[in-house]
């Protein structure tokens, strides 16, 4: 039932696959013996990518007024960027 429903909604399905893949990538990177700075850069960049997909597709802010879309993207960008810098 649920699987059928998901097949009916290709965007949701593709975004889910993309997010799952990125999550597994992040978990893999954690054990990949990177230097702390590189690992933080990789992990938070992956988080940023995941956030972009969630904001655009799931929160559906693609279709929202610019102020709202920019505010949420601004939050994500600011938090990710400042955190990355805090590791460098």
């Amino acid at each position: 039932m649920t699987m059928n429903a998901l097949r009916d909604f290709p965007t949701v399905w593709r975004v889910w696959l993309w997010l799952t893949a990125l999550t597994l990538l992040a978990a893999f990177l954690a054990d990949a013996h990177l230097t702390p700075g590189h690992l933080a850069l990789a992990a938070l960049s992956v988080a940023w990518l995941k956030g972009l997909a969630i904001v655009e597709h799931y929160m559906a802010l693609r279709h929202a007024p610019a102020w709202l879309r920019l505010t949420v993207h601004g939050w994500l960008a600011l938090v990710s960027a400042v955190l990355i810098f805090s590791f460098l």
Partner: peptide, 10 residues
């Protein structure tokens, strides 16, 4: 997603 990356992975 951010918390996971920050606290557990990085």
């Amino acid at each position: 997603v951010v918390l996971f990356a920050l606290v557990y992975v990085a």
